[in-house]
Simulated assay, not measured.
Amino acid sequence: MSAVKRLVVCGGNGFVGSRICRSAVARGWDVISISRSGEPHWDSVTSSSIAPSWAKKVSWQRANIFVPQTYVPYLKGADYVVHSMGILLEADYKGVISGRESPIAGLRKAFSPAKGHSTSNPLQRRDQEGEQSIRPPESAAQLTYEMMNRDSAVLLAKEADREGCAAFAYMSAAAGAPVLPSRYISTKREAEDLIAREFPRMRGVFVRAPFMYDPSRPVTMAMAGATAAGAIFNGLTRGALSSLMGAGGVKPLKADVVADAVVEALADENVKGPVEVPKIEELADKSWRRTML
């Protein structure tokens, strides 16, 4: 009988990360979630404020992704690690929703020039003593695409590789839509390239998810409908507008489908490198069929 697999999900209390935890628990894996706040506020990731029954089987831990000593102990003995953290807009979107920040100010932050944003390999940066260094942000306002989408993933991959993890899954994204800053997708691709190049021993799985939706977040349902229409149109025109539509021309997927695909990809040693939408669906279907046996 094979040993039980251990999975560590950084960002496991988020919209997709929590579903990855659920899928792994259903497979019988030991699951640890790492985030700044610990257990999710369930009404922000599901349709209920009450924790689901599977949540009791997850170890919800608090740590800072930019401070390795706060989470390295949880990586020991892990078979797989998932990075499911990032920001869609360089703005306090919760502040926008609550009225603390105007939507105009948020968009202005998102599309402002990349002043002061580092384009260097985070593993090559050194502090005054010559040690590798990625300085953690002092506040949420300092979070950038480079820090969250790229640097945090590379830093986590470095520690996972050092601990001997077999595979590392990175929640990347399908080609960017024109309504998103180009740096959103470019930093995702930079993270993929750095992880694959710097840690060849560890199997890198880069899940290029499209727009994800779930009934627990009604606003995503309407957006998914519009995105699906764009995908159909793009298909009828044989991808003639792919460069213009970006992710708007890619079929949206339910968040549970993507989560199941992530876990299935980790379990399958033949899955490596970028995982595009058709492969995501294939892996999710394979996962579903496994539950039917």
Rank of each mutant, 00 (worst) to 15 (best):
A114M: 09
Q142W: 06
N149Q: 11
L143F: 06
Y170M: 03
M147T: 11
E131G: 12
S152D: 10
G116Y: 04
Q124D: 12
D161C: 11
K115C: 04
K158Q: 15
M171W: 01
S120G: 10
D127P: 00
A157L: 06
M148G: 04
Q128V: 10
Q124G: 10
E131R: 15
P136L: 07
N121D: 02
A153Y: 03
A167G: 06
C165E: 10
L155Y: 09
A175Q: 15
C165T: 07
L143R: 14
T119K: 15
A169R: 07
F168Y: 05
S133Q: 09
G116Q: 04
E146S: 15
R126A: 08
Q132D: 12
M148Y: 03
R162E: 10
A174F: 02
G130A: 11
S120V: 14
Q132A: 15
L156G: 08
H117L: 15
A141F: 05
A114D: 13
S139E: 01
P137R: 05
A140K: 15
A114Y: 09
A173P: 00
Q124H: 13
M171K: 09
E138Y: 05
M148S: 11
N121R: 08
N149K: 12
E131C: 14
R135Y: 04
Y170P: 00
M147S: 11
R126V: 04
G130S: 09
I134R: 14
S172P: 00
A160M: 00
R135H: 11
A114N: 11
E159A: 03
A140G: 10
V154Q: 08
N149I: 05
S112V: 04
A175E: 12
S152K: 13
T119E: 14
S120I: 10
Q132E: 14
I134D: 07
R135F: 06
K109F: 04
R126K: 14
A114I: 08
S133N: 11
A160Q: 05
K158R: 15
H117W: 11
G116D: 10
E131L: 13
D151E: 03
S133I: 02
K158V: 03
N121W: 00
G106M: 06
L155I: 09
E163C: 02
Y170F: 02
A174I: 02
Y145K: 14
A105Q: 12
P122R: 10
E138G: 14
A169G: 01
A169P: 00
A114F: 06
R126Q: 06
G164V: 03
S112C: 06
Q142K: 15
M171Q: 11
S172N: 08
A175C: 13
G130R: 11
R150T: 05
P136S: 07
Y145E: 09
A174M: 01
E159H: 08
P137H: 01
A167H: 08
A114W: 04
Y170L: 00
G164D: 03
A174Y: 02
A110V: 05
A160G: 01
A157C: 03
G106C: 10
D161R: 13
F168W: 06
S139N: 11
Y145F: 10
V154W: 07
P137F: 00
A105I: 05
G106S: 11
A110E: 13
A175P: 05
R135G: 05
S172H: 06
G130N: 12
G164R: 08
M148R: 12
